[in-house]
C-alpha cells in the first residue's frame, strides 16, 4: 500500500532524510520510531505530499506522490503533530469545513461528520469552540478530521503525545480498531505503544533507517539475542564458572548478570546444548537456560546510543 524507495530530502545543505526505503502492506500498522529530529515528521510530510522529496520516490495507495499528489491526498488521512484546528470555530463547523475540503459528496457530509465524531468519542461536543478544548479533545478532533473521508491510508504523527494515560488507552484502542481496514503509519515516542499496535517497525535515526522489519527482526537487528544461564556449582567460584562457560567454542561473550550469566554467541549459533553438556559433565546443576530477546526499548537505546554517542 505504501512503497518508499530511496527517499532523500535536503533543505539546502542540511539533509533531513537520506535514502529511506520501506514498504507497508495493506491493512498493516507501521510504527515509525526514532529520536526527536530524526526525520520522522519530514518523511511523513513527504508521504502526504506536503513536502516534495529531493530524490527518490514514494507510492501511496497506488499513486506516485510527486506525479499525482492530488490522488494521493484523496486517499490519505493525516494528523500532524499538532492538531490543525481553527480556534475560533466549533467542532461541528470545523469538521464540516474539512468534509467540504475533502470534497465529500454533499449528501454524505453531515452523516460522515456524525459517524466520525461518534467514533473518536466526540458525541455531543459539536457546538464547543475548538479554542476552549483540552489537549485530549483537540487530539480527537484532529483524528476525526483525518478519518473524515475514510482514507485507506492513515498517517498519524504522534497521535498520543500529551494525552493522559486514560486518553492514551482510548486512542490506542481506536487505532487498533482502525487497523485492517486502513493502512497506518504511526510515529511515536512511546515504545510500548508501538509494541502493542505495530506488526512492523521502522527505526530512523539522523535521517537514516537504522533498522526495519517485523518487531522481532528489528529487535534482533538492534541487539542480538542473548542467553540467561543459571548454573549451580557448589564450591566453585562464580568467576571460574564464567570462565568455564567462556571457554566453550560456541560462546562469544560472557558477563555476570546478577546470580546468572549473560551469554552471547555468534548469530545463528545456539550455545545452549554445549553449555548443558559441559555442566552435566562437571556435575553442575542447570536451573535456567533461556534465550532472551531484547525489548524494543533496549533496541532503540542500543542503536540511538551507539550512533548518537
Amino acid at each position: 500500500m505504501i512503497e518508499v524507495e530511496h527517499l532523500t530530502k535536503r533543505y539546502g545543505a542540511f539533509t533531513a532524510i537520506e535514502d529511506v526505503s520501506f514498504s507497508v502492506p495493506k491493512g498493516h500498522v507501521l510504527g515509525f520510531i526514532g529520536p526527536n529530529g530524526a526525520g520522522k515528521t519530514t518523511t511523513m510530510r513527504v508521504l502526504t505530499g506536503f513536502l516534495p522529496a529531493t530524490e527518490g520516490r514514494a507510492v501511496v495507495a497506488g499513486f506516485d506522490v510527486f506525479e499525482d499528489p492530488v490522488e494521493v491526498k484523496r486517499r490519505v488521512g493525516y494528523l500532524p503533530e499538532t492538531p490543525p484546528l481553527y480556534r475560533e470555530l466549533t467542532v461541528g463547523e470545523y469538521l464540516r469545513f474539512c468534509a467540504e475540503l475533502r470534497d465529500l459528496p454533499r449528501a454524505d457530509r453531515l452523516r460522515r461528520v456524525g459517524e466520525v465524531m461518534e467514533r473518536v468519542g466526540l458525541r455531543g461536543w459539536e457546538r464547543r469552540v475548538l479554542g476552549t478544548l483540552s489537549k485530549g479533545y483537540r487530539q480527537r478532533v484532529g483524528l476525526a478530521q483525518a478519518l473524515l473521508h475514510n482514507p485507506p491510508v492513515l498517517i498519524l504523527d504522534e497521535p498520543t503525545s500529551g494525552l493522559d494515560p486514560a486518553q492514551n488507552v482510548g486512542v490506542r484502542e481506536l487505532i487498533a480498531g482502525l487497523a485492517g481496514d486502513h493502512t497506518i503509519i504511526l510515529s511515536t515516542h512511546i515504545l510500548p505503544e508501538v509494541e502493542a499496535l505495530c506488526a512492523q517497525v521502522v527505526l530512523i535515526n539522523k535521517g537514516k533507517i537504522a533498522a526495519s522489519g517485523t518487531m522481532e527482526a528489528v529487535r534482533a537487528q538492534a541487539a542480538p539475542a542473548y542467553y540467561r544461564v543459571s548454573l549451580h556449582a557448589a564450591g566453585v567460584e562464580p568467576a571460574a564458572v564464567a570462565r568455564a562457560v567462556g571457554a566453550l567454542a560456541e560462546v562469544k561473550v560472557v558477563q555476570p548478570d546478577g546470580e546468572a550469566l549473560r551469554v552471547e554467541s555468534e548469530p545463528g549459533v545456539d550455545p545452549r546444548p554445549a553449555i548443558a553438556s559441559m555442566a552435566v559433565g562437571r556435575g553442575w546443576g542447570v536451573s535456567g537456560l533461556e534465550r532472551t530477546i531484547p525489548t524494543l526499548e533496549e533496541a532503540f537505546l542500543s542503536i540511538v546510543g551507539r550512533e548518537g554517542a
Binding site: R45, F50, V70, R74, P80, P84, L85, L101
Partner: peptide, 14 residues
C-alpha cells in the same frame, strides 16, 4: 503558525 496550513496543503486541493 497553528499548523492548519499543513492540513490545507495535504487536502486534495490545489
Amino acid at each position: 503558525k497553528t499548523g492548519t496550513f499543513e492540513m490545507l496543503m495535504t487536502s486534495p486541493v490545489s
